[in-house]
């Protein structure tokens, strides 16, 4: 519960505390074994007879296995490792991520993706605007800026790690590419779990929701995959007068939905709940149902109500299982 801290009055604080306590007392759906949390330099219980593999976050100190991170001890067969609860983003091959271009280098773009290093998107891993598969020439290299500029928001997939440790991305499919007409939100990366689907088209709102595994979430107007959005921005540069620009603005209805979804994401990340499409849509629907102003979604009352709703949802799930 880090970023947003709305000022709660006394009753709201009490309600929030009781809701959070109930959430902790409910058995978590994932593992049935009790969580064993460790802090730095805590010894980990191992059976010294088996040859245990010491995994990430552990260290061998005089025969004792000691933790080097604060987190939870996980055991898988012979592997013992420490999983940090508020872990940084750890890229895996095939992850769908959203990143921002910070630099254009020879034959590649460098993107910031909330990782300890910048990721690289090679010119050859990107489809050319005319769609033909051909060898990239020097002219293509000079025209890189026409495809992606500095500070552009791009959706791509992790291709892998190179031998020197840098992270490479690819954006060869139609669904990847530049993202416009929307807003980018940053949430802690551990709140996003890997799922089958990261691109969500919320039809009832006409909104595209892309949940990047690195904690960057894109909420924007729906764009058909493959539509040449690049042309729109070029028109903008030519027609800089206000009237001609205004017809290309997002319509108000869609914008309201975008803001509602964005506020739902901000709220859930402030509460520390995992971000899934269902949770986000539920929160947005609840705010529509209770007729709360979009701005008031970030206020104290709705904050507490969302926590209480989550308690009820988890309690009903536990009851269904048991």
């Amino acid at each position: 519960m880090r970023d947003l801290q709305p000022s709660l009055n006394q009753t709201q604080r009490v309600r929030l505390q009781s809701a959070l306590r109930q959430l902790h007392s409910l058995p978590s759906s994932s593992s049935s074994s009790p969580l064993s949390s460790v802090a730095v330099a805590d010894p980990i219980q191992v059976n010294h007879d088996d040859n245990i593999l010491k995994g990430h976050g552990t260290l061998d100190c005089d025969g004792e296995v000691v933790a080097t991170l604060c987190g939870v001890v996980e055991r898988v067969n012979k592997l013992v490792y420490v999983r940090a609860l508020r872990a940084r983003y750890k890229p895996e091959v095939g992850d769908i991520i959203v990143g921002r271009v910070i630099e254009i280098a020879p034959k590649r773009w460098r993107l910031e993706i909330n990782f300890s290093q910048v990721a690289v998107l090679m010119l050859s891993s990107m489809n050319l605007p005319d769609g033909i598969q051909r060898r990239r020439t020097a002219v293509d290299e000079l025209n890189m800026r026409s495809i992606f500029e500095e500070n552009d928001v791009i959706c791509a997939e992790v291709r892998g790690f190179q031998h020197d440790g840098s992270l490479h991305l690819q954006a060869r499919s139609q669904k990847y590419g530049k993202l416009e007409r929307g807003q980018l939100l940053t949430v802690p990366a551990y709140l996003v779990k890997r799922r089958k689907q990261h691109f969500h088209h919320l039809e009832q709102y006409g909104v595209d929701l892309i949940i990047g595994c690195n904690g960057f979430i894109w909420v924007g107007e729906h764009v058909e995959a493959g539509e040449n959005v690049g042309m729109l921005v070029e028109d903008q540069k030519k027609t800089s007068t206000a009237e001609e620009e205004s017809w290309s603005f997002t319509p108000l209805e869609t914008r309201k939905h975008i803001c509602r979804i964005a506020n739902a994401v901000r709220l859930l990340s402030a509460l520390g709940f995992t971000l899934t499409v269902e949770a986000i849509v539920d929160t947005a629907e609840a705010s529509l149902a209770s007729n709360i102003e979009i701005n008031d979604m970030l206020g104290a009352e709705f904050f507490v109500q969302t926590a209480e709703r989550e308690v009820q949802r988890r309690a009903s799930m536990v009851r269904k299982k048991g």
């Binding site: 519960m1 802090a39 604060c70 939870v72 520390g272």
Partner: peptide, 9 residues
């Protein structure tokens, strides 16, 4: 540290 770990899990 353990207290804050419990809060976030």
């Amino acid at each position: 540290l353990k207290k804050s770990a419990n809060l976030s899990s």
